Amino acid sequence: MTTTLNFATAPGHQVLAAAGKKILRPGGKAATEQLFTWANFQPGETVLELAASFGESAIQIAQRFNVRVVGVEKNPDSLAKARENIKAAGLSDKITIIEGDIFQLDKITDKFDYVLAEAILTMQSDAGKAKILAAIKNHLKPGGKFLSHEMLVHSNESEVRQSLSQTIRVNANPLTIEAWKTACRKAGLTLQQQQTGVMGLLNLGQMVRDEGLLGTVKIAWNVLINTNLRQRVLQMRRNFQQQRNNIGYIVFISSDM
């Protein structure tokens, strides 16, 4: 049974998902595509995806690149939906979604050619980032690659973190470019390529590119007809606009040092 959300207190990503938004990455589809280009997936390779949500990324990767994907998802509702989506796509032989916590990856004994994590590390403390990154390194095969898509902070770090945390209702701890590099290096990962850009999660233009025109219209309608949802989404949008000069996105690929 699907949990009923309290829009006033629920984490921002759950609120946006309830509105119908499927792409919840700060740089949108284009930034994720850059990661896939860098990765250069080969048929038969293996991918571990952290926080697999509804399984949409796993399905896309498996279909496009003929790789095997293991996804980790903690939320029971998301887990059930992911398995349903994977079955409907006819990819049960290529994708496995397991119930698990990204802080307990030691329960997974396999090693992978790639680990994919999008919009996950930003929401962790420095200690949390370090623990997850160390686990990621331990789950990579020799020469394996870590693919990451996260939020970037340019300036006024304390103000940005406080403002974002109050708005999206979860800890928000985006890093500067140098801090992301340092966090990876401490875990034994070398950042090889990076790209940064505008944080456009709720910008109309990026929404159309990410969700399509019809999808964007559906999201707008859902927001319009639900007062509590509308208040929360507009609050997040105002915050992102106010901080637009201080925040952005970063995608990077790193590997074992």
Score class of each variant (00 low, 15 high):
3 T>K: 14
11 P>W: 01
17 A>D: 00
17 A>C: 02
20 G>A: 02
21 K>Q: 15
23 I>C: 12
25 R>H: 09
25 R>M: 03
26 P>L: 05
26 P>R: 12
27 G>Y: 10
28 G>A: 06
33 E>I: 05
33 E>F: 11
34 Q>F: 04
35 L>R: 02
35 L>W: 02
38 W>D: 01
40 N>M: 09
41 F>L: 03
44 G>K: 02
55 G>E: 01
55 G>L: 00
56 E>G: 03
62 A>R: 01
63 Q>G: 02
63 Q>T: 09
66 N>E: 10
66 N>M: 05
69 V>D: 00
74 K>D: 00
74 K>Q: 04
75 N>M: 00
77 D>Q: 04
78 S>Q: 15
80 A>K: 14
83 R>Y: 03
85 N>G: 03
85 N>D: 02
91 L>G: 03
93 D>I: 00
94 K>I: 00
98 I>Y: 02
107 K>N: 13
123 M>A: 15
125 S>D: 13
126 D>T: 14
129 K>G: 09
129 K>I: 08
129 K>A: 11
132 I>R: 07
132 I>A: 06
133 L>E: 09
134 A>V: 13
139 H>G: 04
139 H>V: 05
142 P>M: 12
142 P>Q: 14
143 G>S: 11
144 G>Q: 08
145 K>D: 07
146 F>K: 09
146 F>H: 12
147 L>I: 08
152 L>K: 11
153 V>Y: 09
153 V>A: 08
157 E>I: 15
159 E>N: 12
160 V>C: 07
161 R>Q: 15
166 Q>Y: 07
168 I>G: 05
175 L>A: 05
176 T>F: 06
181 K>S: 08
185 R>M: 10
188 G>S: 04
189 L>E: 02
190 T>C: 11
190 T>Q: 14
190 T>M: 13
192 Q>H: 11
194 Q>G: 12
196 T>A: 07
196 T>W: 07
196 T>Y: 07
203 N>Y: 10
203 N>E: 15
206 Q>I: 11
206 Q>M: 14
207 M>I: 13
211 E>W: 05
213 L>R: 13
216 T>S: 12
216 T>E: 05
219 I>D: 06
219 I>N: 06
221 W>P: 05
221 W>N: 12
222 N>V: 05
233 V>Q: 03
233 V>E: 03
236 M>W: 09
239 N>L: 07
243 Q>W: 05
245 N>I: 10
245 N>M: 11
246 N>R: 12
250 I>D: 06
250 I>Q: 08
251 V>D: 06
253 I>D: 08
254 S>E: 03
